[in-house]
Nucleic acid binder design. Structure first.
Lengths: 111, 111
DNA sequence: TTGTCACTTCACCACTTGGTGAAGTATTGT
DNA sequence: ACAATACTTCACCAAGTGGTGAAGTGACAA
């Protein structure tokens, strides 16, 4: 039998989606407002088939929503899952701050 | 010639490292303090060869540092790259907050 | 109606990932 | 000296990823 990995959680797909530079570029572009597929593809020098796949990944992760208008497809940010990811990371920001504080305190006493 | 993808950046490898639940579990465990490989592997029900690979990914991403002591290998968090990732996400947190504010303001005026 | 435009889908490819079992390497305890 | 411990490395595998070119689909324009 195959090793039966656990089903991917929300954080899994969100982080995986953000691991690709093209997809992060799409998200960054989408922060300026909605865009069609070609509007996204052109400045990234990405082919339309490639972008279609990336969009599917982002949509699967819940990071973008799309709406067909005529023969164009408008994509827009739905940043909610980013907040989950940010929340996960925020805990480690706090951890790191503690460590930094401990280090500076140590250096203060041991110059 | 192969399509020549761009070399992975810091954010690439950090997000990719965090996309795996086993690796996130390692990071979470490491928040409680340093641990050896077997101490990490046992509660995760992961084999040592598998964990060695995961550790390499985390180390590559700069998330974990290790030190050999005798025949044991102590692993500890070096959360600095998490801050970069958190900073990237924080901008979208702000974006999302703006949108939420805009939505609540809209609902206030159009009840 | 006949193109053209904006995608989407398909079949395929090279490469990577996450896992395995088995063998190898130091280090440590008896 | 010998065996156990704590990994590491190796060869391999199945599945997934990111890309391609070519063909297909539906909306709009001439």
């Amino acid at each position: 039998m195959s090793p039966a990995r656990p089903a991917p959680t929300g954080l899994d797909v969100v982080f995986a989606a953000l691991a690709d530079p093209t997809r992060r570029a799409v998200v960054e572009r989408l922060r300026l407002g909605p865009a069609t597929m070609t509007e996204l593809a052109t400045p990234l020098a990405a082919s339309l088939p490639a972008l279609t796949k990336h969009l599917a990944v982002l949509q699967q992760a819940g990071l973008v929503a799309t709406a067909k208008k005529g023969r164009q497809r408008y994509c827009m940010l739905t940043a909610a899952p980013l907040r989950d990811a940010a929340a996960w990371l925020a805990e480690y920001g706090a951890y790191w701050d503690e460590r930094l504080d401990a280090l500076t305190a140590y250096l203060k006493e041991n110059p």
